[in-house]
Nucleic acid binder design. Structure first.
Lengths: 182, 182
DNA sequence: GTCTATAAAAAGATAGAC
DNA sequence: GTCTATCTTTTTATAGAC
């Protein structure tokens, strides 16, 4: 229970971090092993191939998304506002995993691309009951995607583009213009 | 004037196409030369290094963005709706260049990342006079980014996620909720 | 301007010692 | 479970013929 993170977890952490900081090309097995403080042989004991390493990060992402869906479903501010607002919190394990897998997908990994589609559907299902129609749902999802896409670019190029109060205002706007009922 | 596309342009076309279809990893100089129907030596006459090839695609993107800013500024449906709607037209030269450069950025190219930031600012400047405030501007830009991000994923993973009428509805919604005046 | 051939470096993967 | 050493393949880049 209080077991410290195994080497396996350190490797996965390092892989996600390099993907986020330096892009897909930099995330080689060699660089990952070095960043994790293990040898290439050590890494290869846990992940026999690059595909296995990528699959493990995808699996980690799935678990974290399950947790996130659970959390935003119970958020007091409402599902829509919570979903939009938490699209921007750089620094959570979920963000690192999601940015990392997105980079893998855009590098050309079919498994990563498929996983991202399934994940998007999970979020869509959680949000759908809380918006007025499919166009409103599309708006919510796209704003969130846009926030992630910006993070995806900013992670390597420049600073963050929105502070917390800007994000609150945006989340409130999106909630208001998509709310059902009225 | 009626000069057919030079080998240089064919190479650039092929490079953008592979980036879009198969991801950054697949877009090697070798694969690009093959797809363009030239030898590696032929490619290297025009682009001595991979960096030079990437820089040329970035430069092409800048030119196409200049044209796009010009066009949406004169669109009868209004700048906001035109901007959102044209974020989704897979198949234009602008889209191929933008998707390609986005993939380069996420592969780790700093030049591509910087260029995308400058381009985003150009679009923001074009849209700003037509929305009520900075939060509304952010909404417009993020929806557009979200559409591109979805294309970025869908290009390798699955089919398109919005048909034309859905997109029209979305563009109208975004325009209405961000319009100045009222 | 375009080609072939080849060098040089980097990436993924294997073998086997400890 | 982690290491070093090595092999293979891929990718970038060079040299020089045509």
């Amino acid at each position: 229970m209080s077991r410290p993170p195994h080497a396996r977890e350190s490797v996965l952490d390092a892989f996600a971090q390099i993907l986020m900081d330096d892009g897909e090309r930099a995330a080689t097995m060699d660089a990952t092993a070095r960043a994790a403080g293990v040898s290439k042989g050590g890494l290869l004991y846990h992940f026999a191939t690059k595909d296995a390493l990528e699959a493990a990060l995808i699996e980690r992402l799935r678990v974290l998304v399950d947790q996130d869906v659970e959390e935003i479903s119970n958020a007091p501010e409402g599902v829509v506002a919570a979903y939009v607002r938490t699209s921007m919190m750089e620094g959570t394990a979920l963000d690192r995993a999601l940015l990392g897998v997105s980079r893998l997908a855009q590098g050309g990994s079919p498994a990563a691309g498929t996983a991202l589609h399934e994940i998007r559907e999970r979020w869509a299902d959680a949000v759908r009951p809380h918006v007025r129609d499919e166009t409103a749902l599309r708006l919510v999802l796209l704003v969130s995607d846009g926030l992630y896409f910006n993070n995806l670019l900013d992670a390597t190029a420049s600073g963050p583009l929105a502070d917390s109060s800007e994000l609150d205002a945006l989340a409130a706007l999106v909630r208001d213009v998509t709310a059902p009922g009225d």
